[in-house]
């Protein structure tokens, strides 16, 4: 088993990038006191990030994915996490078999 020096350099570069992004947000919040507005705005970061991550799958991949996203969202209103997500996975698998 081997480690190629250029591969290792790439891994270290990626690590540096992710360490930087993971630490800098918390550092900035500690360093600068936030106003009430900024505090409130930061509260919307979780849904905004999650929405951005799923948007291409939900709206720009295919009919099967769009329908499955809607099914998952509706299931989430009634079911706990695992069954709701499972409903979405089952939906997408069935629709893909049907050729959508």
């Amino acid at each position: 088993m081997s480690i190629d020096p250029t591969t290792f350099a790439a891994i270290l570069a990626m690590m540096t990038a992710t360490v930087f992004t993971r630490l800098s947000g918390a550092f900035l919040v500690r360093r600068f006191t936030l106003g009430e507005k900024a505090e409130k705005a930061l509260g919307v970061v979780p849904p905004a990030v999650l929405m951005a991550v799923v948007a291409p799958t939900a709206f720009a991949t295919g009919i099967a994915e769009t329908v499955a996203c809607a099914v998952t969202a509706l299931a989430a209103l009634r079911l706990p996490l695992l069954p709701a997500a499972g409903a979405g996975v089952a939906t997408v698998a069935v629709l893909r078999v049907m050729g959508l």
């Binding site: 992710t18 992004t21 993971r22 630490l23 800098s24 947000g25 918390a26 550092f27 900035l28 919040v29 500690r30 505090e39 930061l42 509260g43 970061v45 979780p46 905004a48 990030v49 951005a52 991550v53």
Partner: peptide
């Protein structure tokens, strides 16, 4: 996105 996530998590 981790920058925003970290800022939010810190609180």
């Amino acid at each position: 996105r981790h920058i925003l996530m970290g800022a939010s998590l810190e609180r």
